[in-house]
Design a protein around this nucleic acid. Sequence first.
DNA 1: TGTACATCAGTGAACGCGCGTTCACTGATGTAC
DNA 2: TGTACATCAGTGAACGCGCGTTCACTGATGTAC
Lengths: 195, 195
Amino acid sequence: MPYSAAHREKTRAKIVETARILFNRHGFQNVTIDQVMREAGLTRGGFYNHFKTKEALFSEAVSSFLMGRGAEWREDAGIDLSNLKPEMAGQMIDAYLSPQHLGDIDGQCPMIALPSDVARADPETQAAFQKLLTAMVWLLETAISPENANRRNDALSAAALCVGGMVLARTLPSSELAEEVRAAAHRTALKAVNP
Amino acid sequence: MPYSAAHREKTRAKIVETARILFNRHGFQNVTIDQVMREAGLTRGGFYNHFKTKEALFSEAVSSFLMGRGAEWREDAGIDLSNLKPEMAGQMIDAYLSPQHLGDIDGQCPMIALPSDVARADPETQAAFQKLLTAMVWLLETAISPENANRRNDALSAAALCVGGMVLARTLPSSELAEEVRAAAHRTALKAVNP
DNA sequence: TGTACATCAGTGAACGCGCGTTCACTGATGTAC
DNA sequence: TGTACATCAGTGAACGCGCGTTCACTGATGTAC
């Protein structure tokens, strides 16, 4: 058995991570397989040793965020999934709706960079997207103080504010208005999880 | 001067309106010029009599919403721009975050259907998108009771909830979760403009 | 320990298709007389 | 009022390029002996 399974897995992971970043930058359709493979230090043809189609790569790239880049991101924000405390909902929102996240094209959450692309993608990709949102809502809901009778409603709304605020801010050409939207969504999301 | 200017203008408007709908359904890149022209009852080649590039059409399609489909939409919701009253912020939110709007693929607001596409489009298209948001925020802000000291913040947040809630709901494969997000965003947006 | 071998990750040329754009043309229509 | 003409909206064939995918191959590496 030439080439260890670990080697194969490492190459595959490298392709997925490269793709995640390029999709974040340019969107699904504006990234070519050639580009991904070259950026990953490989050549075009090898792609199909690892993935069936370009769409399959997209699905993996979206899905990889939760435990990949997203995990680093939670760590930086001081969020410990195995030990959620009420204040972590606020920390989550602070991090998600931060100017840093707005400026971090490569590392951003796929829900911000790719919603339209996912809406038109295959069911696997949409399922990966849904998992991302479900995880976010779960985290917010679990962290919100149990005294709040509208926990679920507030968690869902905070998630909508997080994604909506960032999507709008990303799309606006005027950075002043973008910043205004981000800041307003931030303030209101904090109020929603901690009324 | 053969063919009246009105005829030319009518054809052009027909192309834009057809394109707006097709972009809403399939996204910018998944719609071909051939498709648009055929659907508008014309043939491929004529396109360039009216537009310089496909991107120019995109920009017009986004921009056409405000005074086109969006105007019908405001009328149905009972919103009169020349005579805004406090309760109209609520009517606006009721209409935007309604199950009907969620189901209306063809008629939906471009901010919901096309945010990722616009984020990667040319400056004209982004400017058209910004005009849409600016109009929405202006409407909400103007309608919100002047007693509210955080008018602008609340209007911006309500807009983020409107767009964010709908974008998420559109992208989710589970219609139950989609409906839950929509309803939560709706409730919280209403609270934001009318605390 | 060293070597022949089998495997399969990776290579790069080629294929085929779709689509944005161009272009020479056609023919419907308004105007001048 | 009727007709010849000029204009230009609309036609449809063709071009050219890019990209997803395929395929015959190469050569690095782990294993058997």
